[in-house]
Design a protein around this nucleic acid. Structure first.
Length: 221
DNA sequence: GACCAGGCACATC
DNA sequence: GATGTGCATGGT
């Protein structure tokens, strides 16, 4: 059973978050490729740990598709060690690179020229890229129109009673598509703001005193 | 020392 | 389709 979301509520939440936190200027990353690497490394991992891994790659001058494509996986794994799951994530980076080089000659410009829906399907076929990572790549590295749903989004909106806690990724995404203007910049900022809110107050279990519906959040909402 | 973090694939029922 | 498990580091 899906609850009906009110378009004004979604936009209102956005406005409040924006007023409180200001523009987030997402994604943190100097190049589209760095954004993609970050999107894979941050899977179920605190960003602070990802930063160390990214720093390691940059210091070695390896933050380029061509470089990582030719780097041995064992070496890659040891460099991204601080980000956790380093064996799995080095495989995932490698599988993305294999896709990038086999389908687009290693060129992100070329990849992002693909139509969004098609490219999303292609990315989802890459082992290690699921819906959130695919959407992060599309939106933040490619500037494509797509909404990123993550653990924070689910937590925050289910506490608001706007979604069922068990709603699927696609169901949650649909609510945003149906109730917000389809603007890349809005989708970009909205997700970033939700992460900011989540980091601030949503660490705790549901129904904790810091829940957005109770005391702590009232400073924001 | 326990618990958690901006997921995903895979096994099993 | 739903649920459980492995993957691993570093901060609180």
């Amino acid at each position: 059973m899906r609850k009906k979301a009110n378009p004004k509520i979604l936009k209102d939440i956005y406005n409040r978050l924006f007023r409180y936190f200001g523009p987030r200027n997402w994604w943190p990353g100097e190049t589209p490729f760095e954004v993609i690497v970050g999107a894979i490394l941050t899977q179920n991992t605190a960003w602070a740990n990802v930063e160390k891994a990214i720093q390691n790659l940059k210091e070695e001058g390896l933050m380029l598709p061509e470089k990582l494509f030719h780097l041995r996986q064992e070496r890659l794994a040891s460099l991204i060690r601080p980000a956790g799951y380093f064996n799995i994530k080095s495989q995932r980076l490698k599988s993305f690179l294999a896709f990038l080089f086999s389908s687009y000659q290693g060129r992100l410009n070329k990849m992002f020229r693909s139509e969004t829906v098609i490219l999303r399907e292609e990315l989802l076929k890459v082992k290690g890229i699921g819906p959130e990572t695919a959407d992060s790549i599309l939106l933040y590295a490619g500037g494509k129109l797509t909404f990123v749903v993550d653990a924070y989004t689910r937590r925050i909106f289910s506490r608001y009673g706007l979604i069922d806690g068990k709603a699927s990724y696609h169901q949650i995404q649909t609510i945003f598509y149906q109730n917000l203007p389809h603007q890349v910049q809005l989708f970009n900022e909205y997700h970033a703001l939700l992460v900011e809110l989540g980091k601030t107050i949503c660490r705790k279990k549901p129904n904790c005193p810091a829940c957005p519906l109770k005391t702590e959040c009232l400073k924001i909402f």
